[in-house]
């Protein structure tokens, strides 16, 4: 029951989620100019980050219900900090050239062991931060999930919500069809800067308001 409700809520509001996550994911996909298959992996990483964020929210909702939404730390500080981190990662991505490293080269480091390298960590981090973005469908999902009254029910609700919203991300990897257009890389970098500045402003505004 809960899973179908969550899925339907995700399905009905997923376009808004796509618009919310778009400023993070689309500039990255444009700038990287990867092939379609590689883009599916990147979007998969992004969605993995979102899934972790949703499961985490599901657990917190299962424990505390919607109470944490009324807490001023959750209301203001956490989304603000997340936006600032997101903005800094986008700005760093836009301004610095990250070398795509051979996995073997960094095998002794933590990132190497995890198989993650800049800028591949950007979609994962972006997905996690975007997942915790308190957009209207997300807040609605928290309210609905809290009705389950237990952690498992809440987590299932959020996983189903995640599945419903994720369908809207399926077209994004096909940006890879245009990867031979060098201009898209430049547009992606510019868009990352603008989105970075937007999230920075939003984050600071949330923290200090």
């Amino acid at each position: 029951m809960h899973s179908s409700e969550g899925f339907l809520l995700g399905l009905s509001t997923g376009a808004v989620c796509l618009a919310t996550c778009g400023p993070v994911l689309i500039p990255y996909l444009l700038a990287e100019s990867n092939a379609v298959v590689k883009n599916f992996l990147e979007v998969g990483l992004f969605l993995s980050g979102r899934l972790v964020a949703y499961v985490l929210t599901g657990v917190i909702t299962g424990i505390a219900g919607t109470l944490f939404l009324q807490n001023h730390v959750f209301q203001g500080f956490v989304p603000g900090i997340i936006d600032v981190i997101l903005s800094l990662s986008l700005l760093a991505y836009a301004f610095f050239r990250f070398r795509h490293v051979c996995p073997g080269e960094t095998s002794n480091q933590l990132a190497g062991r995890l198989g993650l390298h800049w800028p591949e960590a950007i979609p994962l981090l972006g997905g996690f931060a975007s997942g915790l973005n308190f957009c209207p469908p997300f807040i609605l999902a928290i309210a609905q999930a809290s009705a389950s009254g237990n952690i498992a029910g809440s987590v299932i609700y959020f996983v189903a919500f995640f599945a419903g919203t994720s369908l809207y991300f399926i077209p994004l990897p096909f940006i890879g069809f245009f990867r031979r257009k060098q201009s898209l890389t430049i547009i992606g970098k510019f868009a990352a800067i603008i989105a970075g500045l937007y999230f920075l402003y939003k984050g600071i505004f949330i923290i200090f308001h």
Partner: peptide, 20 residues
């Protein structure tokens, strides 16, 4: 001349931010 692509990036962000 690559600055001409800035308007396309701006269009992308403006369109998405208006939707949000």
């Amino acid at each position: 001349p690559n600055w001409r692509w800035f308007s396309f990036a701006f269009l992308l962000i403006i369109a998405l931010s208006a939707a949000i």
